[in-house]
């Protein structure tokens, strides 16, 4: 049986390799702190396997995670001089390979679908070929490997380590944000353990017309959008609104389809992202790039789309998820 843990180990191995390259990178003024960050992350990925199987204490892992946040908080995480491709490199590549450049990237969704839809049903003996309910993730892992092989054979980069160093370039650009979604998931768990969901739920009971499904959908979607506008980030709003309403009211009480409720709820948050200067990288940076007089120009072009789209999300969730 192919297990999803194999791919977490692959992911951990990539982080550890990135850590090694970072430690050796003289152009990175913060190479020790940065190397420690990626190394801790890689180690945490592998150690986690034993935590999940309950053969190692979770508190050690918790300490490592807090240390990573501490490295970020004290400004120890930096990036080296990993320059992207030059204009000339890109033009030469595009001349040579043309549309074939899209092939490795498009391999990924194709392989994922094959695994999630096709191979998920296959059994070897009495066991399923792919670990149950991780079929898509396994597909993603295999797809990434297949795509790298196709890319490597097709493009024939000079160094066999090219995929790793290119991956490292992108990973350094992402930086600490690579672990943010995981930390938000952790925060959600702490919220639940400390009873935050119950408290927010109690508050919303005062606001919500009791027993109203439409009211619940409306508060969840509009709440996602409003929290996103304030925080500039739908990822931050999701754990809060889901702990308050999405799960207890919409999924548990009204038995909504969880996948539909959460997917549409997240997209309701994205409607908020369209409207907020807090999401600077999406809304303010383009205005600067285009040298606009009015830096709110893109937001003004987006708000009249965001409002009806939020209404659509409320309607879609109400009719499709229940």
């Amino acid at each position: 049986m192919i297990k999803v843990e194999w791919f977490y180990w692959l992911c951990g191995a990539i982080f550890i390799a990135v850590a090694a390259l970072t430690f050796a990178d003289g152009t990175n003024a913060k190479r020790y702190g940065s190397g420690a960050f990626w190394g801790l992350l890689g180690g945490a990925f592998i150690y986690s396997t034993f935590v999940v199987h309950k053969t190692a204490p979770a508190s050690v892992l918790g300490l490592a995670v807090i240390m990573m946040a501490l490295l970020v908080a004290t400004g120890q995480l930096g990036r080296g001089d990993t320059t992207g491709p030059s204009r000339a490199e890109q033009e030469a590549g595009a001349d040579r390979f043309g549309n074939r450049l899209f092939v490795p990237a498009l391999t990924i969704p194709v392989v994922v679908i094959i695994f999630a839809v096709g191979l998920a049903k296959i059994h070897v003996g009495s066991e399923p070929l792919l670990e149950k309910s991780s079929e898509t993730l396994i597909g993603l892992g295999v797809a990434s490997i297949v795509a790298v092989i196709i890319g490597f054979v097709m493009l024939r980069p000079k160094s066999p380590l090219a995929p790793l160093s290119e991956g490292r370039r992108l990973l350094e650009a992402i930086g600490w944000a690579a672990v943010l979604p995981q930390m938000l998931a952790t925060l959600g768990q702490l919220f639940v353990a400390a009873g935050v969901g119950k408290q927010v739920g109690r508050l919303t009971e005062h606001v919500l017309p009791s027993g109203s499904l439409f009211g619940g959908v409306l508060v969840y979607c509009v709440g996602m959008a409003l929290f996103t506008i304030i925080m500039g980030n739908a990822f931050g709003a999701f754990p809060i609104m889901t702990a308050a309403i999405g799960y207890p009211v919409l999924v548990q009480h009204f038995h909504g389809n969880a996948a539909a409720v959460f997917a549409i709820g997240m997209l309701a948050g994205f409607c908020g992202t369209l409207c907020t200067p807090m999401a600077a990288n999406f809304n303010i940076v383009p205005a600067a790039l285009l040298e606009m007089k009015d830096k709110y120009g893109p937001i003004k072009a987006q708000i009249p789309t965001a409002i009806p789209l939020l209404a659509c999300n409320v309607a879609l969730m109400y009719f499709l998820a229940f």
Binding site: V4, F7, Y8, L10, C11, I14, F15, A44, F45, Y47, S48, T49, V51, V52, P57, A58, S59, V60, L61, G62, L63, A64, V65, I66, P104, A105, I108, S134, L137, L140, G141, S144, I145, A147, V148, G151, P163, L164, E166, G167, L170, L171, A178, V179, P181, Q182, M183, A185, T186, L187, G188, Q189, L190, A193
Partner: peptide, 23 residues
């Protein structure tokens, strides 16, 4: 600390997108 550790260990799927970066 246990909550941080368990939260991290069980939410690793979120970070699996990293596998796509090399290609």
């Amino acid at each position: 600390l246990n909550a941080f550790g368990n939260g991290f260990a069980t939410s690793r799927s979120v970070t699996l997108f990293v596998l796509v970066l090399p290609v």
